[in-house]
Every structure is written in C-alpha cells, then in structure tokens.
Simulated assay, not measured.
Amino acid sequence: MKKLLIPAFILLFVTVYGQKQNVMDKETIYQFEVEDLYGNTFDFSDLKGKKIMVVNTASECGLTPQYEGLQELYDMYKNNNFVIVGFPANNFGGQEPGSNEQIAAFCKQNYGVTFPMMSKISVKGKDMHPVYEFLTRKAKNGKEDSEVEWNFQKYLIDESGHLVKVIAPKTLPNDPVITDWIKS
C-alpha cells in the first residue's frame, strides 16, 4: 500500500505544481500600452479588475453596423466594470482604408462611438500587432490558438487580464454568450 501511495503523491504533486506553473506563466493583456485614434497612450493596466472585449473593426464592412450594437453594449455595462476596446484594421478586403482621423470621425458621426478606439493596426500576418499576437497565440495567452477570421471578431478578457473566449465576427454584440458572460 505504501509503495502505491508514494508514486501517487508524487504524480499528484507534479500535476498540481505543473498546472500552477502554467497559470503563473500566462501573460496578461495588462502588459500592453497602445496608441488611441487621437495619438494618446492607452495603458491596458488601467483596466485591471474590468472585463474587456477587444474587437477588430472596419468602416466599410458588411458587419460595420455592429458598431451600433457595440456602443449599446458599452452604454449598458460600462458602469459595471466592463469596457470595449476597438482596433481598426485593414486586413480584410481593404475595408478600413481611412486614416485614424477619418476613422474617429466616421465612428463618432455614424454610430456615436464613445468606447476606446485605438489607432489602426494589423491583426494578422507578418506585421501583426503584439496585442493580437497575445490574443491569438496559446503560448502567450495560455488559453487557445486562434486566427482572426474577419472584421468584428471579439476577444473576451476576464478581470485578471486573461483571455476567456473568442467570439466569431458574425456573432452580434447583444448575443447571450456575450451578455451572460458580462453579467456573470
């Protein structure tokens, strides 16, 4: 009996210790500072304790009307430790051709966007922005590998800065998978 307990204890210790190491080794979104549409520094560490939705956006996409739903979601939950952070990107069919100034004007004028919008970046390929390297690589986020499929793909980040879920581009911002997560 003792011969069985010692190897079992060692196996349990190695398993638990290994899991703790993996959790501790996970990076968080808080390590990033980016630039917003107006040239100001945006520090993700200022969002500690909040649930975050990161979404890549585009002004000339069939999914662009999602801006309206994103703004409604932000208005509904911004006082409940929730924030949306938008990243305009021109990676899909040239659907975000404008400058940061043009994007800011478009978002404000057409959809009344007040959630934080960052400067235009690349969300895939050789010039992928480091935030999206974190979001799409399990080695960095500790959760899963993914690829940005299209504009308006959503990444849900918990209050500790860890990736929780990747949401497909066509999933609307008011979908229960998103709203239930925010409320949980």
Rank of each mutant, 00 (worst) to 15 (best):
L4G: 09
A8Q: 09
F9Y: 11
L12Y: 08
V16Y: 00
V23K: 02
V23C: 04
M24A: 15
K26T: 13
Y30K: 13
Y30R: 14
F32G: 14
V34C: 10
D36I: 06
D36Y: 07
Y38H: 06
Y38W: 13
Y38T: 04
G39Q: 06
T41G: 04
T41D: 14
F44C: 03
K51H: 09
N56I: 08
S59W: 08
L63E: 06
L63C: 12
P65G: 00
P65V: 08
P65E: 02
Q66N: 12
Y67S: 00
Y67I: 01
Q71M: 05
L73G: 12
D75Y: 11
D75T: 08
K78M: 10
N80P: 01
F82R: 00
I84D: 03
P88D: 08
G98V: 13
N100D: 08
A105N: 13
C107K: 02
K108T: 15
K108H: 15
N110H: 10
T114Q: 04
M117S: 07
K120F: 13
I121C: 11
S122W: 14
S122A: 12
G125D: 09
G125Y: 11
K126E: 13
M128I: 15
M128H: 07
W150V: 03
K154H: 09
Y155V: 02
L163M: 15
L163S: 09
V166L: 06
T171V: 15
T179N: 07
K183V: 03
